[in-house]
Design a protein around this nucleic acid. Structure first.
Lengths: 214, 214
DNA sequence: CATTGTATTATTGTATACAATTATACGGCT
DNA sequence: AGCCGTATAATTGTATACAATAATACAATG
């Protein structure tokens, strides 16, 4: 029998709002009142409130005179996020190279191969989504929930900006090539190399993103 | 007229539970059912649920077959937390040395002076609480909400372990002396020195804590 | 025309009712 | 005694009702 876990409305609302905020559908400062969301999503206030509390905890929204407003992610935040990622992801990759299991490695390899495939098809959205899976799985492979909990939200928060990267086909191609090198290093348990490559990868990504943002 | 902001029950419940979990009053694996908390705290389920969602988001509790259970912070987590703090707090201190305003600096100085005072009085609890204020204010002084949002939860999560540090009077004295040196470096805008000192401070703290944990 | 006071509305905070699910206890059966 | 099935209880998920607060609109007044 296949378990068909039903996802609670509260979780669905949370994911929906999180996606919309991170993807930039709701722009900075936009007001979210409970009643409006109830009408929009067709659920009662209880699950809405729980989702809002979680989003607030993630610092994606904050209290305002009237309801909650979306907290934007500016250039300064972007710089800080990349600085922190550069400081931590190398170590995470190193740990991943030591601790990964085969199932996790195949997920990374799959994500990589999909990226290579979609690169030919010029499909930025899928490249982006596989980029998420690639990095997130490496966080998991580190075996550290602490690293995961720190890096995962940071990675999510730049979603909006990654769109630009994957749409530039020359940067997208370079990025995927970098992913392949990182993958090879991890797969061959070369943590030191994986670490160096991922830091380079992040620096390249940030250079590209911040160039576009001027 | 002084604004007397009333804190919602939901917030109070959250803070209460967070404190109890972080201080170790609830031990790892302990079950938290909504009804039990309702009875204990004398409020309805709505604020309880909101608090639980926030705690879950902070990864302090997680779902279990029956209710939520407290997630423990083990030695591995402790090591990871100190590794991340060592990688980031130096930079945060550097930014603090550049960006601080006078009000923030006085808070740090006050926290430091209280620590020096309570050191003589042998009052570990107050030393510990001033230790929190000292570090937290430095995070704020960095001017980066990203750094703050990353470091603050990490610092909170080791509360239980800091108790041991401040109770050992020789380590407590050394820790406060290190704080003074860090304070002086920041106050004199010497970011490079502040960074080096805070990394040393963290290494010392971790050495002491992990020694006691064996 | 600006301002202030008031009425109205909108919004949140909290409690509670109800449904659905899941764990648990208990009794009968082999 | 051990096991299965059913009834019971406990627990969560969701909706809604009600109260309190805060925002807004608007009219009266100087």
């Amino acid at each position: 029998m296949i378990e068909h876990k039903t996802i609670s409305l509260a979780d669905q609302v949370f994911e929906h709002l999180e996606t919309d905020i991170l993807s930039g559908k709701y722009s900075k400062g936009e007001a979210l009142t409970e009643s409006k969301l109830c009408a929009e999503l067709g659920v009662s206030r209880t699950p809405i409130r729980e989702a809002l509390r979680r989003l607030e905890q993630e610092h994606l929204i904050e209290e305002a005179p009237k309801g909650m407003v979306v907290v934007g992610i500016g250039k300064k935040d972007l710089a800080d996020i990349f600085e922190i990622r550069a400081a931590l992801e190398g170590k995470a990759a190193e740990m991943a190279a030591e601790n990964y299991n085969d199932e996790q490695l195949s997920i990374v390899r799959e994500a990589l191969e999909f990226q290579e495939f979609y690169l030919g098809k010029q499909d930025p959205d899928r490249i982006k989504s596989m980029d998420s899976r690639f990095h997130e799985t490496i966080y998991k492979m580190s075996g550290s929930v602490v690293f995961y909990d720190v890096l995962m939200p940071l990675h999510k928060k730049i979603l909006k900006y990654r769109k630009a990267s994957v749409s530039d086909s020359s940067r997208a191609a370079a990025s995927v090539a970098e992913h392949r090198a990182i993958y090879e290093a991890i797969a061959s348990h070369n943590g030191e190399l994986a670490s160096r490559l991922i830091v380079e990868h992040l620096n390249n990504a940030y250079s590209h993103i911040s160039k576009g943002e001027n």
